[in-house]
Design a protein around this nucleic acid. Sequence first.
DNA 1: TTTAAATATAGATTATTATTCTGTTTTAAT
DNA 2: ATTAAAACAGAATAATAATCTATATTTAAA
Lengths: 153, 153
Amino acid sequence: MVHLDDIDKKLVALLQDDCKQTTKALSLKLNLSVTAVYERIKKLEKSGVIDKYVALVKKEAIDKSFVAFCHIKLVQHTQEYVMKFEQEVAKLNEVMSCYHISGDYDYLLQVVVEDMEAFREFMVNKLTSINHIGSTHSMFVINEVKHTTAIKV
Amino acid sequence: MVHLDDIDKKLVALLQDDCKQTTKALSLKLNLSVTAVYERIKKLEKSGVIDKYVALVKKEAIDKSFVAFCHIKLVQHTQEYVMKFEQEVAKLNEVMSCYHISGDYDYLLQVVVEDMEAFREFMVNKLTSINHIGSTHSMFVINEVKHTTAIKV
DNA sequence: TTTAAATATAGATTATTATTCTGTTTTAAT
DNA sequence: ATTAAAACAGAATAATAATCTATATTTAAA
């Protein structure tokens, strides 16, 4: 576990909001020299604090505004069934995330598609065609109140 | 809604995986000139397909490995209660996302903290101190099978 | 404490990349 | 076929990243 001082934390917050800003711009916000900021960034990358730099796409702009959460229960929990299910579900483009969770159901999936029809299509032809699924329970997103990729460090 | 051809789609996929690669590197992968790639990227930014460029932080590296999903039911659904709740919950750093959903509960939250103790602290001192919350139901993440920010375009 | 080593910083220099510019080619509509 | 618009390539310029050298600061040991 690496130690981050207050400047590092501020820097990580800035990069989580906009990773394309120049080191010059960052240096002004942090009251540091360009080199100092540069070295700190390299250290954050090397130490694995910063995992990757990505472009975020606006769902609405590409007509993928329908978001659903999907609970899934497996018929059995043998090593083989679990592995197979996890492998298959990870392949599906519509599945943004899949978590093995505690509680009544085994898994929670976040699914992003075009509309309800696309979701139906996804359920029938992709998800439930995976073997070993016992039951599912879907919840549809009415409104996205908050959604961020930025973790407070 | 903007129209994206196959090259645009490939480009968006590349940027969703790594937005720091040079236009030169992208041009080689897309068999285009640097300028052509550059213009396409600018168009994707202007049209809103690309929302922002961010650094993604590895939870494990900053000791925030505990993830929970939290169902919440409000006591009432008056305009005032709903607004107030959504405002307050959006302020909480531990809440990565909050969705208003269909089904038995009103909201689904994704919460990221240090450990179970931090989660308890969060529930007691932050979440349930928001007024108008009726009941909650928490599910803990045992394993993150899949998690991506990249939408297939 | 005092000193040595390691680390962090700043400013200047160089290398790389982004951006702009100009002209050409392709595409689409008339 | 003709024209206008869009997309493209290559060259030139501007901006930024990355490196280098030298100080300053912190850290750890004596």
